[in-house]
Design a protein around this nucleic acid. Structure first.
Lengths: 164, 164
DNA sequence: TATTGTTATACTCTATAACTATA
DNA sequence: TATAGTTATAGAGTATAACAATA
């Protein structure tokens, strides 16, 4: 594989720097750099829209998984969202204290708790899900439906590899 | 725009949950979620490879921009990398103390400092750049060269919009 | 009056060790 | 012996306010 910047001319000149800001071409040739920038841009867009509901991104993710998976456990949430157990405790507790989820006895494991959304929690989740979907409107992502589908397919190949 | 999960059946059943872990289809329908997962996977892959050089991702980014843009200022680095000035101070100081960069007088602004890599800094940067490029080898990203080009094009459309 | 680089500081996010109750 | 949930705590990353020197 070529270890040089893929878009740099062989003579290593930089026709951009003096005109339109610094030469960032190497960083821009990296998938990791571009994926991070895109993720931060989209999350930065959805964040202030979730805020009126009192939700951060992690709160929305947890509430959504509980709504779509009644009886899910904390451990399963941790595995699905790549969150460490100690960092999930506060999230679940806050959702419970606001009356949006409740803990029930797990049917087969007395150590675990089965998490369920309340009626209020389901309503908030539905509202939030609509907001999040709207925050990825084509006017925001600048992508057609086909491009969106392609982008998600490629991103999944990157982080799932053969498991995609 | 449809605010429901794009891949969910109309009857809202979840044939996945009971078999292969929880239903995460709504989150997986989001570009922001997938872009974040891909970025974290790639950064998690490059991180331990930069560590033997004593570099974090932010250190590499700053060192690379200085190497490619001799005389760049801290403010320009902040703008290019979306770092706040107070948070860049320590990065620049650490690179300087290791003898990899040096501060010179700015030719036209006595408030600013012109940053340059030393010979040692240029050598480390070249090594690191090769490592980072290798960390995005097709065996890692699971993408062909065409797919890689397409992915970067789509990600840039997302976070640059019309400025792409 | 605005900007560059800086200090001090606070807040959020993420990570580790260790405990209890149960499997 | 291993796992689910929890506590306490440490570390990294990111944010704001305010300052001296210079534009």
């Amino acid at each position: 594989m070529n270890t040089d910047c893929l878009s740099c001319p062989a003579d290593n000149t930089n026709p951009v720097a003096t005109d339109n800001g610094p030469d960032t071409r190497f960083l821009e040739s990296l998938i990791g750099y571009n994926a991070r920038r895109a993720a931060l841009a989209l999350i930065g867009h959805v964040l202030p829209r979730l805020e009126p509901l009192g939700l951060r991104v992690v709160d929305f993710s947890v509430l959504t998984l509980i709504a779509h998976n009644p009886g899910i456990t904390s451990r399963q949430l941790c595995a699905a969202l790549d969150i460490l157990p100690p960092n999930l405790v506060g999230v679940v507790r806050a959702l419970e204290q606001r009356g949006w989820i409740e803990r029930r006895d797990h049917p087969s494991d007395r150590r675990a708790q089965a998490l369920h959304v309340t009626a209020a929690g389901a309503a908030v989740q539905a509202q939030a899900q609509a907001l999040v979907s709207a925050a990825e409107h084509p006017d925001v992502t600048h992508l057609s439906e086909d491009e969106r589908t392609q982008l998600i397919r490629l991103l999944r190949k990157v982080y799932l590899g053969n498991r995609a």
